[in-house]
Simulated assay, not measured.
Amino acid sequence: MSHQSTIRFIINPTSGPKSRQDVAALIALHLDKNKYRHEIVYTAHAGHATDLAKEAADKGCNIVVAVGGDGTVNEVARGLLYSETALAILPKGSGNGLARHLLVPLNIKGALRIINRGYTSFIDSGNINGHPFFTTAGIGFDAYISSVFAGNSKRGLKTYVQLVLKEVMKYRHLPIKATINGSVFDSDCYVMAFANAAQYGNNAYIAPMANIQDGMLDVCLVRQLNFRKALHLSYCMLTKQLATDSAEYFQTNAVEVETEQEIMYHADGDFMGKASRFSVHMEPKSLKVVVPA
């Protein structure tokens, strides 16, 4: 038998509709046992996945698999930054933004096939006020929705869309001062999205041209939003087009934003709180990932 690689599966038992027994059984059935020696651990609280991932990396584990949604993926990836341990994903969330961007199959059997092949690459990560992100971060409306969604007892895409439709015309833009590529400008801000990957998740493309390996942030600024612009922006996001009539786009490796009053912000869809100063930058090629060939 050839040398086996070590692999740890970190399962968030609250993600997705399937039970932990289903996932464990599928792993046992479809993981290449000649190639991998594996273990399965479960998260018990918020932030636990980061600790479990870092522990595995410190022990020299070859691959750590995030089994859950975007929040679980973010936590696991944070624990693996700048290590030689690769992140793999078994998607079980509603958005699955990073899995979709990396073209990982959204079913567990298909995702395990990718892991069995074992191809790896390096991708960039972003950082907003000290919080790593791997798909998108943002201030304004998308962060506000993240905060409302976090407090909602119902999960899933349907609930998220219902919240957006309910709140989109109620939310009001706020003044900001932004520094991008050495230029300082004042602006209204309904939402300012900082994209490492092209989409939020669910194939909603906020920055269709974003490249997760170019060391650059793709910034989407929506200054104000009325009903017509909201329809146009939604259409463009779902058809992978630039919404140039509704938004402005910038490419940079760092952004500074100041606001007169504290506003909400998020990282990979998780509500981070409020702040009046935001420092956003890229960390090039900082995360090793398992990808399709």
Rank of each mutant, 00 (worst) to 15 (best):
S2L: 13
Q4V: 03
Q4W: 08
S5E: 15
F9E: 09
F9W: 11
P17K: 10
R20S: 13
L31T: 04
D32G: 03
K35D: 13
Y36H: 11
R37I: 01
H38V: 00
I40L: 11
A44Y: 13
A46K: 09
G47V: 03
H48M: 05
A49V: 03
D51H: 13
A53L: 06
K54C: 05
A56F: 11
A56V: 03
D58K: 06
D58C: 04
G60P: 03
V64W: 09
V64C: 07
V64I: 05
A66R: 04
V73C: 10
R78S: 15
R78Q: 14
G79T: 03
G79Q: 06
Y82T: 01
E84I: 00
A86K: 02
I89G: 02
L90T: 01
P91V: 04
P91F: 08
A99H: 08
H101V: 02
L103P: 00
P105G: 03
G110S: 04
A111T: 01
A111V: 01
I114P: 02
I115S: 06
R117P: 00
G118K: 05
T120P: 03
T120G: 04
S121N: 13
D124W: 09
S125E: 11
G126S: 10
N127I: 07
I128V: 08
N129A: 06
F133W: 07
F133I: 03
T136P: 01
G140Q: 07
D142L: 05
Y144D: 10
S147I: 00
G151H: 11
G151S: 08
N152S: 15
N152K: 05
S153W: 07
S153V: 03
S153D: 15
K154E: 15
K154F: 10
K154M: 10
K154N: 13
R155G: 01
G156M: 08
G156C: 05
V164N: 10
V164W: 07
L165S: 09
H173Q: 14
L174E: 15
T179E: 15
G182S: 08
G182Y: 14
S183G: 01
F185E: 14
D186G: 09
S187I: 03
C189T: 07
C189H: 07
Q199M: 12
Y200N: 06
Y200C: 03
N203Y: 12
Y205F: 15
A210M: 06
N211P: 00
D214V: 02
C220P: 04
L221T: 03
L221R: 04
R223I: 02
R223N: 13
Q224E: 15
F227Y: 15
R228M: 13
K229I: 00
K229E: 14
L231H: 10
L231Q: 12
L231S: 13
L233D: 11
L233V: 06
C236H: 12
M237Q: 09
L238R: 01
T239Q: 06
K240W: 07
Q241P: 01
L242D: 15
D245T: 12
S246V: 02
E248P: 00
T252Y: 14
T252Q: 11
E258L: 10
E258Y: 12
I263V: 14
M264V: 04
Y265Q: 06
M272I: 06
M272N: 05
K274P: 00
A275Y: 06
A275N: 10
V280K: 04
V280T: 08
H281I: 00
H281N: 14
P284G: 08
V289A: 01
V290A: 08
